[in-house]
């Protein structure tokens, strides 16, 4: 308890940065992921290819390497701190998984939905926005929930590039107090403060949407 009390502001700062990084990465990766999912189902073969290459690149390289790439290479051209580099890497990495999840969701929406909408006069994009994507997200919701939880935990790579997040602050506290075990227990509990409500909320959303239609 002393450990928590004496270092509370440090933990809290880390918690704040982890939460901030996660929220930014969640929003950005949802937008990018949906965009690259749609690219992969457009009729033009070369557009599909672009979407596929993006997904394959970011899905198949360790997150830590992507993070180092932004922190050590990209930062030489566009100056950025560890928090920014880590959050960008986290967003791109997660977006590749979200793209695959959303793409699978789109493909499991009955093709009659798009056909009905087009025959009704809607453009491809109107049909996507109002008919196909809402149904695709609903189908994809359980695995999107998984992605979001992974995202929060993966944000701990910020610690490797001085990203000031929970893990980073935990490392600091552990080094200063020599109480490694206690520190990481506290760090784990802080992560749970984010991930448990998140998983609860995703389950709640799933139930709610199930009853809606």
């Amino acid at each position: 308890m002393d450990l928590l009390q004496n270092n509370f502001s440090t933990f809290l700062q880390g918690f704040g940065y982890t939460l901030l990084s996660s929220v930014i990465a969640l929003v950005v990766s949802m937008i990018l992921g949906t965009f690259f999912a749609i690219l992969q189902i457009l009729p033009q073969k070369w557009v599909q290819k672009v979407g596929n290459i993006y997904v394959q690149v970011f899905r198949n390289i360790p997150l830590l390497i992507i993070t180092f790439f932004f922190f050590l290479v990209v930062a030489k051209v566009i100056p950025m701190n560890g928090f920014t580099a880590g959050t960008i890497a986290l967003s791109l990495y997660t977006s590749a998984f979200i793209a695959e999840t959303v793409r699978a969701g789109i493909l499991s929406v009955n093709s009659g939905q798009m056909e009905g909408a087009r025959a009704n006069g809607l453009s491809f994009w109107q049909a996507m926005q109002h008919i196909v994507l809402p149904q695709a997200f609903k189908i994809a919701l359980p695995s999107l929930g998984n992605q979001f939880i992974n995202l929060v935990k993966n944000s701990s790579i910020l610690a490797f590039v001085g990203g000031l997040d929970l893990m980073y602050q935990g490392n600091m506290v552990a080094a200063n107090t020599f109480d490694t075990f206690g520190t990481y227990i506290i760090v784990a509990l802080f992560y749970l403060v984010i991930t448990l409500p998140l998983s609860y909320y995703m389950q709640h959303l799933e139930r709610k949407l199930k009853h809606a239609a």
């Binding site: 009955n110 009659g112 939905q113 056909e115 009704n120 109107q126 109002h130 809402p134 149904q135 609903k138």
Partner: peptide, 25 residues
């Protein structure tokens, strides 16, 4: 066009099915 398998918008209520295209298009 009216289809064999209806192709109603599964995520919209009956009246929204009817109102959507006139609203958007």
């Amino acid at each position: 066009m009216v289809f064999q398998h209806f192709n109603l918008y599964d995520n919209k209520s009956t009246i929204e099915n009817i109102m959507l295209a006139p609203r958007l298009v």
